[in-house]
């Protein structure tokens, strides 16, 4: 069953330009879906619509099987970590307790979850501190941790790791993975591609309000990775004749101390030809490896 189903969604704030322009995608129950895009691409607007904060201009949207107009029924079953820091101007512990009260979490359950999350997000040392005395990263940790106090079927995370140190960030990503294994559906946005690669089952890249590509990480890298680099360790330095012959294959060449770096689009198709050319000129290949495209390469390729 789809936890989120979006068909031809559009949103305009001024009736002139679409912040979200005819996007369609779906997220299965228990799936972690990453939404990537530049600043202003339409990620946050999409999340705001899906979390019932703002109204769509047109299109069909279903969340947890409910039409998006059933906002109250949806809100009771979702969690949202907004991009902007949100908190009550009181201590960390009180923020947790108040949030638990707002979500009607039973006292005993709230206490145990609070302790678990304080530990997980490394907040024990600052639990009595006023939220205004915390660093930006600590505030973000409070905001994210607080959301896990209540039960939910679907969680929206809009750039949740901003300002977090790598250790807490990894802990959070692993915790999200664990929760997803137990059935939680997650819609996640980030600017850190490694995070999306590590966490998401599927990724959609949007630009100027439009969905450009969608798929799992391997699929995206394989099909939209753009330039890849072939590294060859040779027995001796390469001569100009061989260089020119390689360059004629439309590749970029870098030569450094018997090491040859050949970068090209769709390089997989010309690897046999490259090897043949190198060996034809009397060079022995000692070592060969290829840099895989990263999700960042994909992002640059499709967004630029």
């Amino acid at each position: 069953m789809d936890a989120i189903s979006v068909d031809n969604l559009r949103k305009t704030y001024d009736n002139k330009k679409y912040a979200v322009d005819d996007i369609s995608f779906s997220v299965k129950s228990g799936e972690i879906y990453g939404l990537l895009g530049k600043n202003g691409a339409g990620k946050s607007t999409t999340i705001k619509i899906l979390s019932t904060l703002i109204k769509k201009t047109s299109g069909n949207v279903k969340v947890l099987g409910l039409d998006i107009n059933n906002s109250m029924d949806i809100r009771k079953r979702i969690g949202v970590v907004q991009q902007d820091l949100s908190f009550d101007l009181t201590s960390v512990e009180r923020n947790f307790k108040i949030y638990g009260l707002l979500w009607n979490v039973k006292k005993e359950l709230l206490k145990s979850r609070m302790e678990e999350l304080m530990e997980l997000f490394d907040l024990n040392k600052v639990r009595k501190n006023n939220i205004m005395d915390l660093s930006g990263g600590q505030k973000k940790r409070v905001q994210v941790a607080r959301e896990f106090l209540h039960d939910m079927d679907l969680l929206f995370l809009d750039e949740p790791t901003v300002g977090m140190d790598p250790i807490v960030r990894r802990k959070l990503l692993d915790y999200i993975k664990m929760r997803a294994k137990n059935g939680l559906t997650v819609l996640f946005t980030t600017h850190i591609m490694e995070e999306a690669d590590y966490l998401c089952d599927r990724i959609g890249i949007i630009n100027s309000g439009k969905m450009i590509i969608e798929g799992n990480s391997s699929y995206l890298k394989e099909n939209f990775g753009g330039y890849k680099t072939l590294k060859l360790d040779l027995n001796k330095d390469i001569d100009d004749l061989t260089k020119n012959e390689l360059i004629s294959m439309n590749v970029n060449l870098k030569n450094e101390n018997n090491k040859l770096l050949i970068t090209a689009k769709n390089i997989d198709n010309i690897i046999p030809e490259i090897i043949k050319t190198v060996e034809k000129h009397g060079y022995n290949i000692i070592k060969l490896n290829m840099d895989q495209s990263s999700l960042e390469d994909v992002f640059f390729e499709v967004v630029n």
Binding site: R75, I78, Q82
Partner: peptide, 9 residues
């Protein structure tokens, strides 16, 4: 905003 995406109208 946070309250309006929570269980409140």
């Amino acid at each position: 905003e946070q309250l309006l995406v929570g269980p409140f109208n």
